[in-house]
Computed example of a mutant assay.
Amino acid sequence: MGRSTEQTASSEAKIAGSPTTFAQDLLVACKRGDATNRYRAALAEATDADLSQVREDRRTGLAFWLNCYNAGTQLLLAERPSLYESPLRFVRFFSAPAVTVGGASLPLDRIENGILRGGRSKYGLGYVPKIYVTTFERRYRLDECDPRIHFALNCGAESCPAIRAYEPDRVDEQLDVATGSYLDSTVEYDEDAGVVLVPRVFLWFRGDFGDGSEIREFLRAYDTIPDSATPKIRYRSWDWTRADGKFVE
């Protein structure tokens, strides 16, 4: 067998591990510019039994789907960049197949809104349930939406947070770090004017964060406004400039 044949056979051979590991490895391969086919194939071929921890354990599900989403974004940007540049980005890019898991071809919208956000629509400021929910989404969606996901998901825009590989046993700690870091770099509090400028995700997904008092409480928890402050909330514009490969160093 020649060297090229051996390499092909090796790359196509099944790899050992869990779906959680495959999702992490896929994301790392995207960061490094390495081949991704074997990790994508392993996720696509995962059985329902293989994915039991993703379904049954909250931390495993959070880490897994965050990694799948962020890897899917990088794959779409590299392989189908015209979808992002299209004036119809919100339909074409977010609805295009990004990654296949357990035989289900999943767009970014389905991972974020159908699974991570527990079946909520991206319209209606996050208060409205999704109208069309697939059987796969119902089986794998998280019971509750953790609002910190909005500071971990990267859809390819300049305003998006930096990407990191999430691990089930550390995902809560990692999400706190990601949230604190993003808020530190984007929130502006003007004590004299009594105004706080916050990322636009607080408006787009207000249903995930709550009303103004709950948003302020969220900001206080990450030390971005003083405990006694009750500023008016204003929202930043979103920079949709394409920004590939925005990984935490």
Results as ranks from 00 to 15, higher is better:
residue 102 G to C: 06
residue 18 S to F: 14
residue 68 C to S: 06
residue 211 D to L: 02
residue 67 N to L: 08
residue 168 P to Y: 13
residue 29 A to G: 05
residue 182 Y to Q: 12
residue 174 Q to C: 10
residue 47 T to C: 00
residue 114 G to S: 04
residue 11 S to G: 02
residue 51 L to N: 03
residue 95 S to H: 07
residue 199 P to G: 03
residue 96 A to T: 03
residue 249 E to A: 10
residue 192 D to S: 15
residue 1 M to Y: 11
residue 170 R to I: 15
residue 95 S to R: 01
residue 130 K to D: 09
residue 140 Y to D: 01
residue 153 L to S: 07
residue 207 G to S: 12
residue 107 P to N: 06
residue 183 L to N: 04
residue 3 R to M: 15
residue 98 A to I: 08
residue 69 Y to N: 05
residue 11 S to I: 10
residue 205 F to R: 02
residue 7 Q to P: 04
residue 134 T to C: 07
residue 154 N to E: 10
residue 81 P to A: 08
residue 29 A to K: 00
residue 246 K to A: 07
residue 133 V to Q: 13
residue 102 G to I: 14
residue 71 A to R: 01
residue 55 R to Q: 05
residue 3 R to Y: 14
residue 236 R to M: 00
residue 220 R to M: 11
residue 234 R to M: 11
residue 210 G to P: 07
residue 205 F to S: 00
residue 25 D to C: 05
residue 185 S to V: 06
residue 164 R to I: 12
residue 77 L to T: 02
residue 207 G to Q: 03
residue 244 D to N: 03
residue 57 D to G: 01
residue 19 P to Q: 13
residue 52 S to Q: 12
residue 125 L to C: 04
residue 103 G to L: 10
residue 84 Y to A: 00
residue 189 Y to A: 12
residue 15 I to S: 03
residue 7 Q to W: 14
residue 63 A to K: 07
residue 109 D to H: 09
residue 169 D to F: 14
